[in-house]
Amino acid sequence: MENHSILTNVNINLIQYYSIAFSIFFLLFIIELVRRKKIREEYSIIWIIIGFVFLFFSIFRNALNILASNLGIAYVPMALLLILIVGVFLILVQFSTVISKLTEQNKKIIQDNALLQFEIDELKKEFDKSKTTKVNK
């Protein structure tokens, strides 16, 4: 019974204020990172979308209930978790594609660098040879 009385004293608007504040803070944080070029614009898009989705559900609390009932989710907080997981998945898939691209570019640079080094060494050898023959003359 005591627990119940504690629960009734909770101001359920509080979590809404916190989540709105957090969403805004999160969005500002991402934008600041982009502004300082710590994140490239193209990689910030998914983060910014996630930020706005959170902001949306913080402001319109009922939206989460509507979403849950439309998806057939009985326990509403699970809908929130689902949104979160989808966002994280998208980000991780993007990371995989970026890493793959970087690996490919990195391989090409290492190969071309080695081929250029070979060419330079050969040119150097030829140059040294032509220098010594001139001196001998």
């Binding site: 990195n106 391989k107 290492i110 660098n113 081929l115 080094q117 070979f118």
Partner: peptide, 25 residues
């Protein structure tokens, strides 16, 4: 032999491909 020196380990495929690039060039 001619020597091509890859600064980082690329694995057999990356190494052999460098050989093909050399052969092409």
């Amino acid at each position: 032999a001619y020597i091509i020196n890859l600064k980082q380990n690329l694995g057999i495929g990356g190494a052999v491909q460098t050989g093909f690039k050399f052969a092409l060039k």
